[in-house]
């Protein structure tokens, strides 16, 4: 699936130059850039790079209102991702999203033998129309994303599946100037026949 591949590659292909310039003046808990006053532009929040991740990811099976970890073959496999701001300032969340949520989410989905689960591909994916997004998460608050994982992965055999999601933290760069990848907890779901 081209869009997913893009997402995965993008984690390794980060705008190092962009952030390297910001890294020299890195200060944790620095104030964020105020949004445009005339509200005609997309409100992009940019923070100086910091030394520790700015958010955590918590993964749970099912939707936010109904946690379930057992699904029948062919049914919608839903997971919920909670991104919590663990800084003392607003962090910006922006980019593109598609059927699997934020396109920078990277999903590690394996069967009970540890083998990666087959991905779905859409032949017209080059014509997908992802939507851009940009918003802020204030200090201590969270954003909840429900993702229908069966849109991107084949859960066509009964058994247990292990899932983990990760996302680059563009406010936190490693020694090479690349965003640190924040990983979620690991969950197990069961597919029944």
């Amino acid at each position: 699936m081209k869009t997913l591949q893009q997402a995965f590659k993008s984690m390794l292909f980060v705008g190092a130059l962009t952030f390297a310039a910001l890294l020299s003046g890195a200060q944790d808990r620095a104030p964020s850039t105020p949004p445009e006053q005339d509200h005609t532009r997309i409100p992009v929040i940019r923070n100086p790079p910091q030394s520790a991740p700015s958010f955590t990811l918590t993964l749970s099976p099912g939707s936010r209102s109904k946690q379930i970890s057992e699904f029948r073959i062919g049914s919608k496999v839903r997971i919920t991702i909670v991104e919590k701001n663990i800084t003392s300032h607003t962090i910006g969340c922006s980019g593109w999203y598609s059927d699997l949520g934020d396109m920078l989410y990277s999903f590690d989905v394996r069967d009970e033998d540890g083998k990666p689960v087959e991905k779905m591909v859409h032949p017209d994916s080059d014509l997908d129309t992802p939507r851009y997004f940009s918003f802020g998460i204030t200090a201590g608050e969270s954003n909840t994303d429900e993702v229908e994982l069966s849109n991107g992965y084949k859960f066509d055999r009964p058994g247990k599946y292990v899932i983990q999601v990760s996302h680059p933290d563009q406010d936190c760069l490693d020694a090479d100037g690349k965003p640190v990848v924040v990983k979620s907890n690991i969950i197990t779901i069961t597919i029944t026949g």
Binding site: Q6, I42, G95, W96, S98, L104, Y132
Partner: peptide, 19 residues
């Protein structure tokens, strides 16, 4: 809009169509 295409890191920038 300008900036990264879908699936690429970074934030698109520019003006929106409807507010």
């Amino acid at each position: 809009l300008s900036g990264p295409a879908p699936g690429c890191p970074g934030s698109p920038d520019g003006t929106m169509g409807v507010r």
